[in-house]
Design a protein around this nucleic acid. Sequence first.
DNA 1: ATGTCGACTTAGCAGCAGCACT
DNA 2: AGTGCTGCTGCTAAGTCGACAT
Length: 853
Amino acid sequence: MAIEASTKPNIVNDFDDDDYDGPVVFKRSNTAAKQNQLNPEGKRPSSSTANGQNANAQKGKTTVPSSKASPMRSPPPNLKASSSSAKGSPVKSPVPNSKTPSPLDDRVKQSPRPNSSTSVKKEDDSGSMLLKQMDHQYLRFNIKSAPDDSDDEVPLSSRFPKSSAGTSGGKPIFRDEKKPLTSKLQQNGSTTLDKQQKSSLGSIKRPLDKVGSSATSSAKKPKVSNTSTEMKVKQVTVKADDDDHIPIAQRMKKSISSDKKAPPTKTTKVTKAVSSSSKKINKKSKKVIKNSKYSKSTKMLPSSGDGQKKWTTLVHNGVIFPPPYTPHGVKMLYKGKPVDLTREQEEVATMYAVMLETDYMQKPKFKENFWTDWRKLLGKNHVIQNLTDCDFKPIYDWHQEQKEKKKQMSSEEKKALKEEKMKQEEKYMWAIVDGVKEKVGNFRVEPPGLFRGRGEHPKMGKLKKRIRPSDITINIGKDAPIPECPIPGERWKEVKHDNTVTWLAFWNDPINPKEFKYVFLAASSALKGQSDKEKYEKARKLKDYIESIRAAYTKGFTSKDVTRRQIAVATYLIDKLALRAGNEKDDDEADTVGCCTLKVGNVECIPPNKLKFDFLGKDSIQYVNTVEVELPVYKAIGQFQTGKKQNDDLFDELDTAKLNAHLKELMPGLTAKVFRTYNASITLDDMLSRGTKEGNVAEKIVVYNTANKEVAIICNHQRTVSKTHGAQMTRLTDKIEELKGVLKDLKIDLDRARKGKPPLKDSDGKQKRNLTPEAIERKIAQTNVKIEKMERDMKTKEDLKTVALGTSKINYLDPRITVAWCKRHEVPIEKIFNKSLLAKFAWSMDVEPDFRF
DNA sequence: ATGTCGACTTAGCAGCAGCACT
DNA sequence: AGTGCTGCTGCTAAGTCGACAT
C-alpha cells in the first residue's frame, strides 16, 4: 500500500450509484456533470467557460445548463458537430461481375472440404459456428459434464487447454498498489496469483505470450520493395478453408491438441521451404502445421516488433473498386433554370445534393471547399458562377426516391441483391497468411465523395477523388500470384513483397496526399490478435511499475527544472485523467488537443486546488472535467500558465516524443497510451471483482455494464444522443404513469374485494371481473415489478445516452478480464461479447477463471 | 533536436436487419 | 402489418508512435 492518498489527487467524487459499492473511481465534479448535460435537442452544448477560455471551443454553440441532476456521473459533453447526416454515398449500382478466378479461389478449390468455399453461406456458417463453439465453451466452464456434440475429433479438454495467458509477469503482484487511480479501497485476497496460474506460467510457454521479449533489435529497416532476407518461400498450398469458420483460439487449440494429445489425422502440405532465418522461429509452428489437419501458424507468430517479419507467405486478391458512376440525368437548377452538367460535374453535384439535409450545410467551410473543388470541374466560364444560386433539390429528391424504392423492395429482392454482391466480393474477403485463411478488414476501395471531417475541419467538403488501380500499391507474398487488376486496361501502381508490414494494399489519401489509406486484415485475424494481446500484456506490465512511476512524477512536481516539472505534471494528467498524449497538429487539421498540446486556456485553476479542463480532444469531442488535485500540481499548472496567452501551449517545453522518451526510461516500451489501457482494464477488473455479488445473470450483467460505463467515462467515450431519445423518454414516462394509474385502481379494488364489494368499472365503463383479494394482490405485485423495471430501464437509458460503451470494450478492456469473470460467475460470454468481439478476442477464450489483470 | 514519414490503433456514426411491441 | 428500437457492421476519420531524415 505504498501508493497512498497523498500521491493521488483527491478527485471530486459524486458517484453514488445505488447498486454498486465497488471502488471509487474518477469522478466528474458536479460542475462538470452539470455542464455535461445535453440540451433539449440532444445536441451537446458548447463548452463556454466564463472567460471564453476554451481555446478550442467551437463557435455558435450554446451551453444549456443541466435541468436535472443525474444520480450517476454524467460524462463530459462534447462539442462535436452532431451530424445527423445520412451517409452520402451516392448511387450505388451493382458491382460488375468479375469472373476472374482468384488465386485464393484456386486454393480453396483444392480443399478437400467443400463447404467453406461457397460464398454467401460461408459467413453465416462461420458465424453460427462460432457462436456454437462459444456455447460449448460456456458449457464447459459452467456445466462441466455437458456432452460435446460438435467437433468430435477434438477432445473437449484439448480445445480449451490450459493457458499461460495472463501469467506472463513473474513478479509478485501487490494489487493494492495497482488499483485504478482513485480506487484505493483494500481488496482482500486479491493478491493471490493462484497456484494454477503460477504453475501454468512455468509450464506452457506459448509464443503468443512472449510479449516485448523480441530478442532481435527493433531497428526499422528502410521500406524497400522486398526486404526479406530469407530464401525463397514457396507459397502455401493449403486447404486453408478447412477451419475458417473456427475461431482462431480454438483453431490454435486444435493444433495443440492434435500436436500434443490427439493423433494427427491428416498431414497438410504447407510451407515447402522456409528461410534459414525464420526456420528457428517457425520450428514449432511447422511441427504444429504438419501434425495438424489444420494449417496453423498462429501458434508461432513472430513477435510483432517493428521491422520484424510479420508473415512468411501472404496470398490475397487485392481490392475491389466501387462501380463507376451512373449518371441519372436529373437536372439541378441554377437561378431557377435547369442546368446541363457533364457526367463528372453531375457526379460531384450529386455528392453535394445528398448531403442537403445534413449539418454540414450549416458550415460555411464545407460549402466553400466544395465550391472550390466543384468549380474546377465546372470551369471558369460555366453557367454556374456561384453556389448560392444553385438548387440541388431536384437531385436530392431523386436520391430520396431511390432510397425509398430500395426500401420498398421485397425481402427476396433484397436478399438476391445481397447475394449477388457477396458473390462478387467473396474472393476479396479473404487472405491466406502463412497458410491460414483470414478475413480482410477493408477490401473495398473508398468511393469518391465529399470529405466529412469532424469538428471544424478545415478541409471538410473537399472532393475526395476516385481511387484508381494506378493509385494502389499491393503487398503480397513473393511467390503468390499478383492479384489481377479488376479494372480492365489499368494496372496497379506497384507490387511489393514486404513481410515486415501487415498491410495488403495502400493508396494515398486524396484529401491529404502525404497520408495513406491501408488495407489490413480484419480484427479477428491472428496478426491483429497477436498485437492486441501484446498491447494488454504491456499494460499489465505497467502494474509492476506504476507505483514507482507515480512516486517519480510526484517528486517531479517540485523539480527546479521546468521541463522535468512539465513532464511530471503531464504524466500525472495522463495517468489520472487518462488523457491522450497529444501530438502536434497541422493547420490543415481540426484544432484539437491532447495532454502535451493543451493550451493555457484549456485549464482553469479554481482555488484552492481544483483544475477545470475544457478542451476538444480526438474527433473534436469535448472534454470537460473539474478535478481536485494535489497542491503541487495545482501550483505547477499555475506556473506554466504565468505570463502566457490563452492560446499558448501549457506545456511549452514538452512534446509527445520527449514525454514518451521519458516514459521509456521508466518502463521498457511504455508510452502515454499504455496508461489508458492500463487504467481502463484495471478499473474493470477491480470493479468486477468488488462489485459482483450473488445473483442472477441479469444482475451480474448490470455490474459489468456499470464497470464498462465507468471506463467509458474515464476515457471520455461519447456518442451523440439519438434523435428519438426525448420521445423515447416521454413514452416511457407516459407508460409508467399509466401503470401507476392501474396500480391505484387495483388498490381500490383490493380494498373493495376485502369488503366483499365488486371491483370498480374500468375506464371504458365496463364492469371488471371479480377477483379474490389474493389475485388482486398478485396483480399489484406484478404491476409494481413492471413499474420498477421500466423505471430502471429509463434511468439506464438516460445515464447512457451520451456514453459509448463499445469503444472501450473493443480497444481498452483486456478481454481476459471479461472472459475470466464470465467463467467465475457463470455468465455466458455471449452476453458480453457479440459475434465480432468473440472472433476478435478468440485468443483470450482459454484464460483461467482466476485471471486478474 | 526537430520534422516528416509510415504503419498501425482508436474513434464515432450511418445504415440496416431483425426483433419487440402494438 | 406497421412502427419503433436496438445492436451490429461497415466505413473512414483521427489519433499514436517508432524510425528515419535533416
